[in-house]
């Protein structure tokens, strides 16, 4: 039997790998992909809890998270396109027009 914690640990690993990707990736698209990985980790946690609690809310929550992820992806990719048009680069270190 697989204990619930295995699913949650997998979800935590995916989440943390996403966080690592967010901090260490150098191009904008990869950073955004890491954020999507984080959301997938959270989805796994929701579904695991939903199963263990015999409650449908978790499934519905994942549904809404996917909806939000879709809208976010559309807007985020549009922003990335706009940035590339303006700066001609995808390198996040170049996003430095405004300094401290």
């Amino acid at each position: 039997m697989i204990p619930l914690s295995y699913y949650l640990i997998l979800s935590a690993i995916l989440f943390c790998i996403g966080v690592a990707g967010f901090f260490f990736k150098r191009d904008i698209v990869s950073i955004f992909i890491s954020i999507e990985l984080m959301l997938n980790g959270v989805n796994l946690a929701f579904v695991a809890f939903s199963h263990a609690l015999h409650s449908i809310s978790g499934n519905l929550f994942v549904f809404f998270v996917m909806v939000v992820a879709a809208a976010e992806a559309a807007v985020g990719l549009a922003i990335i396109i706009a940035v590339v048009r303006a700066r001609q680069t995808l390198n996040v270190d170049r996003m430095d027009l405004m300094k401290l």
């Binding site: 954020i35 922003i79 990335i80 700066r87």
Partner: peptide, 11 residues
């Protein structure tokens, strides 16, 4: 500047 601010805010 505007697109860059939008990008940072978004990410």
């Amino acid at each position: 500047r505007s697109t860059e601010s939008s990008l940072k805010y978004f990410l």
